[in-house]
């Protein structure tokens, strides 16, 4: 085995990537890092304005990207996005299941419709996009990388986030199950589990939770309460970990859940 150089390990030139929810927050940071590494990025989001902004910024920096309106919870949209990616970039090598929602509400006030919505975007969406993308990867016969966004909340429950906790616990086991079944096709499936990260989403959730009657104390406890490194993370902290998983530096790792939480789960 000839050993690739460090620069070669992290070079994604010629690769096509799909990032769901790439319009803002963590997904946007992931799009920027994959693009910096040389990948062409399909930015899929329900919010087309946001997706277009990510694409414009990538193009400003000299990268290649395209925006597509898609709901991560829709099987039809998964097919549409995969077809568009193959069409635009010639191949699909990396999928990042990033789109996710995390409404905060005490469990006794969670209605069935809300439960269904969280599970269908966070869990079923990851399944649908992984299956559709893996089909294209298997047909191409070159293997690939699938990276799911889990969460520390999938390992340890966060208060007032019951559907979310359950969805991310599901994402963790889905990641391992897909890794096991897709390994013969050289498709590696891993997850990154962020702790508290400052994104537009966490800011919105904080605002709406306050409106719903949660106190500031309850909120700050659920967000940055006990982090040994004493800071919330930035979207790029997660994007770096996703870049690692997408790179050749992680070619013997599959079914792993990489925690990026500033030590939160230790405390």
């Amino acid at each position: 085995m000839t050993t690739p150089s460090i620069a070669e390990l992290f070079d994604l030139s010629g690769k096509g990537a799909i990032v769901t929810g790439g319009g803002m927050g963590i997904g946007q940071a992931i799009c920027y890092r994959l693009s910096e590494a040389g990948a062409s990025v399909m930015v899929a989001d329900v919010n087309m304005d946001a997706a277009n902004q990510t694409v414009d910024e990538i193009k400003n920096r000299g990268g290649k990207a395209q925006a597509i309106e898609a709901n991560a919870a829709s099987a039809a949209d998964a097919k549409k996005v995969v077809a568009a990616t193959v069409e635009a970039f010639g191949s699909i090598d990396i999928l990042v299941n990033n789109a996710g929602i995390y409404p905060l509400l005490p469990v006794m006030r969670v209605e069935e419709a809300l439960f269904d919505k969280v599970i269908s975007v966070n869990l079923k969406g990851s399944f649908l996009f992984a299956q559709t993308t893996a089909e294209a990867m298997i047909n191409a016969g070159k293997g690939g990388k699938i990276i799911n966004l889990a969460s520390v909340d999938g390992l340890h429950p966060n208060g007032n986030a019951t559907p979310y906790n359950a969805s991310k616990g599901g994402v963790i086991m889905l990641t391992k199950a897909l890794a096991l079944e897709l390994a013969p096709h050289k498709i590696l499936v891993n997850a990154v589990a962020p702790g508290s990260i400052m994104t537009p989403g966490t800011k919105n959730v904080a605002a709406s939770a306050l409106e719903a009657g949660l106190t500031i104390e309850q909120l700050s406890k659920s967000f940055t309460g006990r982090i040994p490194l004493e800071r919330a993370g930035q979207p790029d902290d997660i994007a770096r970990a996703v870049l690692f998983m997408a790179s050749a530096a992680a070619d013997y790792t599959t079914g792993d859940i990489l925690l990026v939480d500033g030590g939160y789960l230790l405390s």
Binding site: A179, P228, Q234, A241, Y252, T254
Partner: peptide
């Protein structure tokens, strides 16, 4: 990766590098 600045928000983590053996 772990020694690099790419992992500056990661501590207390165990990265499994096993080709999926534990699965």
């Amino acid at each position: 990766f772990l020694t690099s600045a790419a992992a500056n928000y990661i501590t207390g983590e165990i990265i499994v590098v096993d080709g999926g053996y534990l699965l």
